[in-house]
Design a protein around this nucleic acid. Structure first.
Lengths: 138, 138
DNA sequence: ATAACTAGTGCAACAGAAGTGCATTTATTG
DNA sequence: CAATAAATGCACTTCTGTTGCACTAGTTAT
């Protein structure tokens, strides 16, 4: 029983071959991935399977969905690289306009956002766009 | 020559009947609207025309596009209700999970966001989700 | 005013992502 | 091993966004 299998079972997800592969893929990638990314990485697998796997992972809090403003849903593992459990579920993501990759910037906390009276804040999504470290030539 | 016609011409957009209507619609709405919203409001007009009108408006800085995390592009007039000209093009939007409406919260400035070395910030998109004033019963 | 030209609109079609229903396979449990 | 439940594969559908092309309306020059 591998680490990944344990992790999946801890989240009430049965560790099938496909799921382990997808988990591995997500773990290796440091960036948020879209369904199509996984699709091209696993050419043999059906899109639907990948789609439903991601949905399952999302439900079971293994990954969380990221909206980086490209209009395409992306996903990233919740552990180590993302603080989606903390208080207000603050997401801080950086989307590179050059390479189109989206990364989690977890070191940088989001300042408390105030909303007007009557508004109830449940969730904050912050996407910074620009040029990432790899593309800016450091 | 109405106010709206003047506004359009000031932005180098020829004030056609359709465009005036769409501008009026946007001005009346206090919330950001999606293409489909306009579509159902103007059942007679073609979707393509509305689409291209919005694109033209966007190009000419009459409206700006909002990504509220629903995956559907929305638009709002740049004037009075949005500060899309200021320094870093900071957008602060509130999306109600109940009524699904998205509004601009212009009174509340976005604090300066720091990004790690090597990253260059060009644009910041902040969407707060929750319950709006209308739905929270004030 | 009219011909020539340009901008705007309508229609049709396509692309990509997301989502659903159903049959089949795989795994689990009695 | 049979019965059951979960996972997967396939075929479709829907929705948003987008483009090409023909046609119309509006503008400009002669």
């Amino acid at each position: 029983m591998t680490e990944i299998e344990k992790t999946l079972e801890n989240h009430q997800v049965r560790p099938t071959a496909m799921r382990i592969l997808i988990y591995k893929y997500l773990a290796e990638k440091e960036i948020a991935v879209a369904l199509t990314d996984i699709e091209s990485a696993f050419a043999k697998a059906e899109r639907t399977t990948l789609y439903r796997t991601l949905k399952t992972f999302e439900e079971k809090k293994i990954v969380h969905q990221i909206d980086d403003g490209t209009g395409i849903s992306k996903y990233a593992l919740c552990e180590s690289g993302c603080n989606c459990e903390i208080d207000q579920d603050l997401h801080l993501h950086f989307h590179c306009n050059n390479c189109n990759e989206t990364v989690c910037l977890t070191e940088h906390k989001i300042p408390q956002i105030k909303v007007p009276d009557g508004f109830v804040s449940e969730n904050v999504n912050l996407v910074v766009k620009g040029i990432c470290d790899k593309c800016s030539g450091q």
